[in-house]
Amino acid sequence: TQCLVVAEHDNKNLMASTLNAVTAASKIDGANISVLVAGSKCSSVVDSASKIKGVSTVYHIDHPQLEHGLAESITPVVVGLSNKQSLTHIFSPATNFGKNFIPRVAANLDVSALSEITSIQNGNTFKRPIYAGNAIATVTSDEKVKVGTIRTTAFEKAPADGGSAQKVAIDDWAAKLVDESVQQTGIKWVSQEVVKSERPELTSARVVVSGGRGMKSGDNFKMLEELADTMGGAVGASRAAVDSGFVSNDLQVGQTGKVVAPELYIAVGISGAIQHLAGMKDSKVIVAINKDAEAPIFQVADIGLVDDLFKAVPALTEAIKKAK
């Protein structure tokens, strides 16, 4: 049983999501786990990957066209490795990085793919959420290679230290596959604009504070930012708040937005439409603040407070500051 985890990284650091994917791979009995680091000037990532506990081999390739992890350049490397090493499983985190190239790999291997795996029963039986988590499907795969993305919130991080994997360079055969694919597809990376926010990313934040239509305006979201900042959290929004023009769409939590599962989710002025609940109901603890005692959000909240949010939120921010 040969499991490959394709590492997510920025050429300097290994992303923690890779560690979640390694844990997922370790759930398969008798798995020999290898990691692929495909990047440009990424030797520090190769070193980090070789130290992950439970990883036996780190395959690595250094190529300028792999700098940005484009699907067109990384896919032929993974497919080539699969053929050479007779891989049985290929995983990557279900982040925009993994979601982008994993299905392309599967198609080029002529196998189906499994998205957002949340549980691995055995080498060919997996669980994954459908309908934005409103139902959980158990799926079996008879494909020769099981290819999938791993929902990071469903698996612990593998220890980043304690391993000593063998490092194997694959540039000799893989570099020309990268060149060919980039040339044939005519893909060109132009630029990147990474939002330099002090706050963590919505989907990986430990705490998320979201606002709904009850916030009344975009300016009032400052209040939520202050609350989020007391706990190092991220700010989200319901679709109603986005549709009302309070905040931009990338903050949307819900079935048609982002699915989050933080340790703490604070829903402020959110009534709790089905489509919103679908995006946050796997959070460990849910707090709801709403002046309408009948709002459906209270049915899923562990801690509900029926109050005027314009009084309660600043008070909560102060109280948390004091409590720390």
Binding site: H68, T95, N96, T185, I187, K188, Q192, E193
Partner: peptide, 12 residues
Amino acid sequence: EIDGGLETLEMK
């Protein structure tokens, strides 16, 4: 949309 920001690609 990429994790944490935006990326621009040019395709033939």
